[in-house]
Each structure stands twice: as structure tokens, then as C-alpha cells.
Amino acid sequence: MIQRFIELGQGYSDIYELITLGENMSERVQHVMAFYTVLTNGENRTSVAIVMKPTQPGDFQPIYICREGIPYPHDLANKRYDMFQTMAERINKSIIELTVRPSGIFGETELYYQHLIGILRMNNYIAPLK
């Protein structure tokens, strides 16, 4: 199975695309996730993501993400996170919240996504490597 992050942006206007994907393909949504991190400058930020069920045939599992562009919602209420939370409620999913390392400490964004895939596999949110 191929599991890959597909970055839509940092959560500004692209969060509308993420929400639309979740609502329009709700039968394929496996998990709705929020990754909390503290950036190297000390800011608390949030990445929001939707883990889709694998395609059949093909065994491709996309994970759509808006990376580190949303303020930490437990410090400061914000409309973008509220919209994401509303979408999760409409499709009857709970947001899975994880605290992770910031992407900036990795040499490449792809390494960061491999790190996240490892975390998701270890916690049984996605299937293990075959």
C-alpha cells in the first residue's frame, strides 16, 4: 500500500478545499486529524488533515493536509479550525489530536511526512507497511 501526504497549502484559503473534500467524499474519510506543534520561533501552530480510505484497486491512501498555518485552537479560537471541526461533526468523525515535531526541523518536507506516516502507523491509524 502506498500512503502519501498531499499538501494543499498552509490552511489559509486552501482549507476550504480540504473541507470540501471531506464533505463531498465523506464515505471515503477514514480519520480527521489535527497535528499540534511548536515552531522553532515558539509559535503554537496546527496542521489539519483528512486520512482517506485506500483506493480499490490500487491500494493508494492519500492524506490531505494543510500544514502548520492555523493557530493553536486551544490558545486562541479561530474560524478556520472551527470550520474544520464543523466539517468533522457533519461527517460524524471525531478529530484525532496529536502533538508532533515541527516540519522545519527536518531537512525536507518529504522527511517530515515520512515521520508523520511512521507515527500514524505506530498508533494504528493507518495500515502498517506491507
Rank of each mutant, 00 (worst) to 15 (best):
M1E: 00
I2S: 01
Q3K: 13
Q3D: 08
E7A: 13
L8Y: 03
G9T: 00
Q10C: 14
G11D: 04
S13E: 09
I15G: 00
E17H: 11
L18R: 13
L18S: 10
I19G: 10
I19M: 15
I19Q: 02
G22Q: 08
M33I: 01
M33T: 09
A34S: 15
V38W: 00
V38T: 08
V38K: 06
V38I: 11
T40I: 14
T40M: 10
T40G: 03
G42P: 13
G42H: 08
E43W: 12
V48S: 03
V48T: 13
I50L: 11
I50Y: 01
M52W: 13
K53G: 12
T55W: 15
Q56H: 14
D59E: 15
D59C: 15
F60C: 15
Q61D: 07
Q61I: 11
Q61G: 09
P62S: 10
I65C: 15
C66K: 06
C66L: 10
R67S: 09
G69D: 01
G69S: 09
I70D: 01
L76A: 02
A77K: 04
A77C: 10
N78W: 08
K79W: 15
R80A: 13
R80Y: 15
Y81G: 11
F84H: 01
M87P: 08
A88K: 04
A88C: 07
A88N: 07
R90K: 14
N92R: 12
K93A: 06
S94N: 11
I95K: 04
I95N: 12
I95Y: 03
I96T: 00
I96D: 01
I96H: 03
E97D: 07
T99A: 05
V100H: 03
S103N: 03
I105A: 05
F106Q: 00
G107E: 03
G107R: 01
T109Y: 07
T109P: 08
Y113H: 09
Y113L: 13
Y113A: 07
Q114F: 05
Q114W: 06
Q114E: 13
H115Y: 14
L116M: 06
I117E: 01
G118A: 03
G118V: 04
G118F: 00
G118T: 02
I119G: 00
N123D: 05
Y125N: 02
I126H: 08
I126Q: 05
L129P: 12
